[in-house]
Amino acid sequence: MERRKFIRNTLAGSALLVSNQFPLSAFANDPNIVKLTILHTNDVHSRIDPFPMDGGRNAGLGGAAKRAQMITDIRAKEKNVLLLDAGDIFQGTPYFNFFGGELEIKLMSKMGYDIATMGNHDFDAGIDGFNTQLPHANFPFVVSNYNFDDTILNGKIEKYKIFEMDGLKIGVVGTGIELKGLVPDTHYKATRYLDPITSAQHYATMLKKEMNCDYVICLSHLGYKYGREKVSDVILAQNTQDIDLIIGGHTHTFMREADRRRNKNGDPVIVTQAGWAGILLGHIDVYFERSKNKRCITCKNQLVG
């Protein structure tokens, strides 16, 4: 019941927040404003069906068929939509034990996912199990800090990806969590883990500075934040530049609102995550001012509070 109340409050809160901001309807017909809609999930964990109606706290929540309809409805309304997943697609219901992740990946393809990153549980059928399901994906996977050169995934996972729509150039990088100690080495085999901050920074800067991306998203499975030094989305946000948005996973974090931070240059960077199991669909609207001016005329401070 607590979770239900929280979700309801979250929704009410977000609605209020939006209504208090700049009158968005004013943008609707402004040819100089381009809107990008980013939808995201994380840690869906093979939750194909909604949670059973057994009185449990998540009863009736989630489910691929409902999510698909939500996505279709949003696509019908919005011109520029990106649909992303931040990893841990696999493991959690018998669907995975029975079909090895085939159904999860096929459904994501049908829903039109544009890109996903890999979570630690995506190695649960071994790197070979993941490789078996990969042909069912009509979208790419992106991880910048796993070196797959000596594995079966060599050449099959992207380091970064660029999406162009409506005159916008959007770059996506991925960051994965350290596998040692978390995933049996017999599962990840010769995959080499590289420092996520260094890797993400390298590709983010390349995307922003050399490839002239307007917006850079980091799809991360590092986890939102920890009580200790362990690298997280918040640490990544604060210690890098050229990343505008971090869409996270791993910690199954339900957020009341996005965590708006400053990066190491003092520029805004948003950290977000959408719980787990497909209970929520993260929805981000980014408004761009298209102009000949190097400075933005209508931009407001991105940081709240």
Binding site: I7, K169, D214, E257, A258, L281, F288, E289, R290
Partner: peptide
């Protein structure tokens, strides 16, 4: 130039 002008985040 495409300047990031405003970002709204909700969880549906």
């Amino acid at each position: 130039y495409n300047h990031i002008q405003q970002t709204d985040v909700v969880y549906e």
